[in-house]
Design a protein around this nucleic acid. Structure first.
Length: 266
DNA sequence: ATGGCCCGTAGAACGGGA
C-alpha cells in the first residue's frame, strides 16, 4: 500500500498535477494540506473521474486539509475525525480517517512565522494539544500514520544551511523538542528508517532559485507508529512535481507499507 | 542591506507562507 503526503498550496491550481501524480505513481492514500478551498468548492467530481474518493475540511483562503484514496481500496473507510477536540480552532488543519485497522491523519501544523511572535506561540500551543490528541488516537488505533506538513525541520541534516537557520522558525529548539515528543509517543519518522541521500528536502522557497540551488528544508513527514514501522518498505521524497510548471513549493513524500491483511497474518 | 515568489481575495495591494 502506497501512502503519501503533499502540501499542494491551493488544490484549485494544483488539481491537474495532483491527479497526474496519483495515477502515475499508483498512490493508494494521499494526505493533502493547504487546499485553500471551502468545502463546497472541493473538486470531488474531478477526483472521482480520476478514480479517487476524498474527505476534506476547508475554509476560505487559508489552510484546508484532505485525505484522498483510490476507489475500491478495501472496505469503505470510516471513523472520520475533523479538528482536535482538545483544541478548539477556526483554522482547518486536521482530518483523519480509518481504513480498516489503519488510521491515517492529515495534519497541517501552523507555520509560526517568527520565533517569539504571536503565531509562534499559537504554533507551540497547537503542537502541545496535537501531542495529547495523537496519544489518544494511538491508544485507539495502534496502526497509525500521522502524515503532513509539520513545518518543523527535525535535525540540522534536514536544513540546507543549518547555521543560517539556527534557532530560526521551523528549526528552533522548542519546535524540534515537540517533534521529538511526538516520536516518543511511539512513532518513527518513516523517511529515516532508510538510508537517504544527504540534502534531501521537501520544501524549497519560490524565490532566489531555491529549488535549482537545492536550498531547501525537510518539513513534510510521515510518522508511523511502532506497530507499523517494521512493515514500511521504502520512503522517498519525489522531487519531480517541484520541477513542473507552476509547482507547489512542497514536494510529496511517499512510502510503501505492507498491507494490513499481511501485517495481521505475519 | 533589502528583498527577491506564489496564492487568494481582491479588483490595488496585502496577508500569509516558510
Amino acid at each position: 500500500m502506497r501512502i503519501a503526503t503533499w502540501n499542494v498550496n491551493s488544490l484549485k491550481v494544483r488539481l491537474p498535477q495532483v491527479i497526474d501524480w496519483l495515477i502515475k505513481n499508483q498512490v493508494d492514500i494521499l494526505c493533502l494540506q493547504e487546499t485553500k478551498l471551502i468545502d463546497t468548492a472541493f473538486p470531488s467530481e474531478e477526483l472521482a473521474q480520476a478514480g479517487y474518493e476524498a474527505v476534506f475540511s476547508g475554509q476560505p483562503t487559508y489552510n484546508g486539509v484532505a485525505i484522498l484514496w483510490r476507489s475500491g481500496l478495501g472496505n469503505a473507510p470510516d471513523s472520520l475525525i475533523v479538528d482536535n477536540p482538545r483544541f478548539p480552532d477556526e483554522q482547518k488543519r486536521l482530518i483523519s480517517l480509518k481504513f480498516g485497522a489503519l488510521r491515517v491523519v492529515s495534519a497541517y501544523v501552523p507555520n509560526g512565522q517568527e520565533v517569539g511572535s504571536e503565531k509562534y506561540d499559537y504554533k507551540l500551543r497547537w503542537l502541545d494539544a496535537f501531542e495529547h490528541w495523537v496519544k489518544d488516537l494511538l491508544m485507539d488505533s495502534p496502526q497509525l500514520v500521522v502524515a503532513g506538513d509539520y513545518n518543523i525541520a527535525p535535525e540540522d541534516r534536514d536544513v540546507h544551511d543549518p547555521q543560517a537557520w539556527d534557532g530560526k522558525i521551523l528549526c528552533s529548539e522548542p519546535e524540534r523538542s515537540r517533534f521529538d515528543n511526538l516520536k516518543k509517543l511511539g512513532f518513527e519518522d518513516a523517511f529515516r528508517l532508510f538510508e537517504q541521500a544527504p540534502k534531501t528536502f521537501s520544501w524549497w522557497d519560490y524565490r532566489q532559485l531555491g529549488f535549482q540551488k537545492n536550498r531547501g528544508l525537510r518539513i513534510d513527514h510521515l510518522l508511523v507508529s511502532t506497530a507499523l514501522a517494521p512493515f514500511v518498505r521504502t520512503c522517498q521524497i519525489d522531487r519531480a512535481p517541484r520541477k513542473a510548471k507552476q509547482p507547489s513549493d512542497h514536494a510529496p513524500v511517499w512510502m510503501d507499507i505492507t498491507p494490513h491483511h499481511e501485517v495481521q497474518s505475519s
